[in-house]
Simulated scan of single mutants.
Amino acid sequence: MRPYIICHMMSLLDGRIDCDVTEKIETGDEYYEVLNQLDCSSTLMGRVTMEMHYALPEAFVAEDKAPIGEECFNIAIQTKGYIIAIDTMGKLKWPHNQFDGMPLLVITSEECPKEYLDTLTKQYISWIAVGKGSIDLKRAMEILRAEFGIERLSVTGGGNINAAFLKEGLLDEVSMMWCPGIDGRKGMTAAFDGLANDFPPTKLKLMSAEKLGDTIWARYNL
């Protein structure tokens, strides 16, 4: 058992997802209005996205680097929904334990220093440590459902974490918004990025499509 998972993204027509650029093209609240319509109680983002928008600028550096070394979790605040950060080795420092009205929950690997997880506990931040070497996303999603009660989850980037969920077969839907603009800069991250060259293409089935001003919103299932 795991949550029902929807990847929700806004990109330019060329698939790039630089928020600074998309916000210059699409200046309204359409992205967040659509996200609310998806009725997901919790939202998950990758380390880079969380570092850009939520975490403190300086990295956490453990004095004692001994790893937690086992699968475990801590529920600091029991609630209906969380804002969830993926942070494999425990590098992000947090100014608060809540953002956008939702408590923070951090997912790390079992290689994460115990000192980092103890720091989260002292800040009343929930956490999950799961996976040897890297985060076991499938097991993390099972823990989210069984222990934290999360039934619907939106994954909102960046491109590498979106691709990781796709690779693990964890996405039930893709909710994609294309705003009326082009980026075109070399090397900019796409909505799904970082997969090996031999990873097969993923065929989707269109569920619905809607015009929101000059923005197109389409929902697909896998």
Rank of each mutant, 00 (worst) to 15 (best):
I25R: 02
I125R: 06
G181K: 01
G184N: 07
T108E: 00
D18M: 02
S41R: 11
Y31T: 05
G158P: 10
K203N: 09
N97I: 00
P103K: 04
Q37A: 04
K122F: 08
L92S: 05
K211A: 12
A140D: 08
L104W: 07
G28M: 04
F60W: 10
I5H: 01
E30T: 06
E168Y: 11
D87N: 05
N197P: 08
K114Q: 15
K93E: 08
L222I: 07
I86F: 01
R145I: 06
D183Q: 09
Y220E: 05
M177H: 08
I182Q: 08
N197L: 15
E26S: 00
E23K: 14
P113N: 13
D20P: 02
G149T: 13
S208G: 07
L13S: 04
A59D: 14
K167A: 15
I182G: 09
R16E: 00
P103S: 07
E30S: 06
M10Q: 10
D193R: 01
A163S: 14
E151R: 15
E58P: 00
G181M: 10
N197F: 15
V48L: 11
I75D: 00
E26T: 00
L153R: 15
N221R: 12
L166E: 09
I77R: 12
P57A: 08
Y82F: 09
T79L: 10
I83E: 12
A218G: 13
E142V: 12
I128S: 09
D100Y: 03
D29R: 12
M52N: 13
D29T: 06
D18E: 10
L206S: 10
E71P: 00
D64P: 05
L144P: 12
F73S: 05
P201V: 04
Y116D: 02
I216V: 15
R152V: 11
M177A: 10
F148I: 01
T202I: 14
H53T: 05
A55Q: 02
C40R: 03
I17T: 05
Q123I: 05
I125M: 13
M52A: 15
R47C: 09
A209R: 04
I84L: 00
K132W: 04
C7Q: 02
G157C: 13
D172W: 06
I161S: 06
S154H: 08
L12P: 03
E30R: 11
P113K: 09
V130D: 06
T108I: 00
N221H: 14
I5Q: 03
T215F: 08
N221V: 09
S154W: 03
P95W: 01
